[in-house]
Design a protein around this nucleic acid. Structure first.
Length: 487
RNA sequence: GGCGCCUUCGUCAAGCGGUUAAGACACCGCCCUUUCACGGCGGGUUCAUGGGUUCGAAUCCCAUAGGCGUCACCA
């Protein structure tokens, strides 16, 4: 790849930014950054007027920025090949469509949508390839006049050459070979004058001098259509790379029922962009060595299209969680706390303004629970430990623990020793557990469990001494007493 | 249905004709911590099936099966 690398990410702004799109964007970005003069172009494919929205475009751009995937050219960045929004390039497409018509390589088609659907269904029934049968391929002037008189608005169809091999190179899949007879004459401009994806994408990629088209596998079957257009327009064909799809746990295409699918959702759940990028890079690509955790620079250095997998990949949330936890370990407790505060406020645990004193305690609380967190939103699962004073004992097993014959003695002694403590922190609380064990001659479980359940209502959780520290003596005592009074 | 792509542990995957078929996540077990977690150590009939080619096949070829994509005036 010695020539200049110009890659593009060309989303259609028709919904929230999907995780699969993020991976396509990432692979493009990685390639652009890997090579000295590499450029990433962001182009918005908004020709679907019914579904395209400005909000989606903003969402995509914000998500890209959040992930750190910056673009060099395109929407909001400018460049020499603009405009970069397809709806702003209509005159360009019109010019090329006219050129094809003038050269006899495209024609007006007056068939209605219903007629086309009927034709396709009939063909499917006969087990034939459902392609356009060429009804309007060679219309006479009279027929055209007749249709015009009826008020039909024509589409423009490309006259696909027959009996021809359509070939192209795919960086992931190798040499591709299709039969042009399976392509058929397809619409390039809709009746309303807006170009169709397959047409606009070819003109834009060619005019924007894109060297590598890296996109999802769902576009693979579309590529022959684009290749015949490149040839008809006398454009140089770029290199293609069709990366496989991201699947849900049941091996079907990732959708809402598999959980979070948009970048924004992961952001809101408190995942770190570096972790998500790292995870996405490892979906469909593997390094030459055994490294799992990559800084961005390491990723750029190690990444190569040569090692992009052909087979689709299942989105493994467990691995994402693990990776995110690894990245969270590098964060300070202050930072994690700051990230959690808006969510705590939203759930009513905290008031908007947090005092310095409160903040310090919160940070301490973060230190105690942080090993249990894979992603930010899990902070809320532990918030009750700190904020909720009326304890609900979680289940019968936990209740059993409180009914244990030594439970009362344990609690009484523990509380008494705690009251005498001068420095009320985890480091000083910890030895008290051991003293109680020793003096009462009971097992560790008999000490920790009743106390844990009485103070938190739960059998499992973060370090008990730490929890007691952040609670403080009074709060701990009242929780314990309230819980025990019910037994 | 046509066309096309794909198929190595549950999952992500290494592997490019000779390997005890890496590693990671998850899972299970043990250790550490007299709680919990973190951490450490260890474990597992993984090459879809059937035919070739070859001294030798996860690797090459051909079938079959399954999965997915696409056949839009969506992208």
């Amino acid at each position: 790849m010695s020539e200049q690398i110009r890659v593009r990410f060309a989303p259609s702004p028709t919904g929230p930014f999907h995780i699969g799109g993020a991976r396509s964007a990432l692979f493009n970005w990685l390639l652009a950054r890997k090579y000295p003069n590499g450029k990433l172009i962001l182009r918005v494919e908004d020709t679907d007027q019914a579904r395209s929205t400005k909000e989606s475009e903003e969402n995509i751009k914000e998500s890209l920025k959040w992930l750190g995937l910056t673009w060099d050219e395109g929407v909001d960045a400018g460049g020499d090949y603009g405009p970069y929004r397809q709806m702003e390039r209509l005159d360009i497409y019109k010019k090329y469509a006219q050129k094809l018509i003038d050269e006899g390589k495209a024609y007006y088609c007056y068939c209605t949508e219903e007629e086309i659907v009927k034709e396709r269904e009939a063909l499917m029934k006969e087990n034939k390839m459902p392609i356009y049968q060429g009804h309007c391929r060679n219309l006479t002037q009279e027929q055209i006049a007749q249709y015009e008189a009826e008020g039909r608005k024509p589409t423009i169809r490309f006259r696909t050459p027959e009996n021809q091999a359509v070939e192209f190179e795919d960086l992931v899949r190798g040499h591709m070979n299709f039969d042009s007879n399976g392509v058929g004459d397809f619409v390039i401009v809709k009746a309303d004058g807006i170009p169709v994806y397959n047409f606009a994408v070819v003109i834009d990629d060619a005019l924007m001098k894109i060297s590598h088209v890296i996109r999802a596998e769902e576009h693979l079957s579309n590529t022959p259509r684009q290749v015949v257009l490149y040839e008809a327009l006398d454009f140089a064909v770029p290199k293609f790379a069709h990366i496989s799809l991201i699947l849900g746990k049941d091996h079907s295409k990732m959708s809402k029922r598999h959980g979070a699918t948009s970048v924004e959702q992961y952001k809101n759940l408190g995942y770190l962009p570096e972790a998500l990028v790292n995870f996405l890079a490892l979906l469909g690509w593997a390094p030459q060595d055994e490294q799992e955790i990559f800084t961005i620079d390491e990723l750029i250095k190690a990444f190569s299209m040569d090692h992009v997998a052909k087979n689709p990949a299942v989105f493994d949330i467990d691995k994402l969680n693990w990776l995110n936890a690894q990245y969270m370990k590098k964060l300070s407790a202050e930072k994690i706390t700051m990230m959690a505060i808006p969510h705590l406020v939203e759930k009513g645990y905290l008031k908007e303004a947090v005092s310095t004193d409160e903040m310090a305690k919160l940070v301490r609380f973060t230190e105690i629970i942080r090993d249990h967190l894979s992603y930010g939103a899990q902070y809320l699962e532990f918030a009750d430990l700190y904020f909720k004073d009326d304890i609900v004992v979680e289940d019968d097993e936990a209740k059993q623990v409180l009914l244990d014959e030594t439970a009362n003695d344990v609690m009484a002694l523990f509380q008494q020793k705690l009251a005498a403590l001068e420095e009320f922190d985890a480091a000083h609380i910890q030895p008290i557990f051991k003293q109680v064990i020793k003096e009462l001659k009971v097992g560790g479980k008999k000490v920790y469990m009743p106390l844990r359940v009485a103070i938190t209502g739960q059998m499992h959780g973060p370090d008990l001494a730490g929890i007691i520290e952040v609670l403080g003596y009074d709060k701990m005592l009242s929780r314990m007493q309230n819980t025990m009074s019910a037994f």
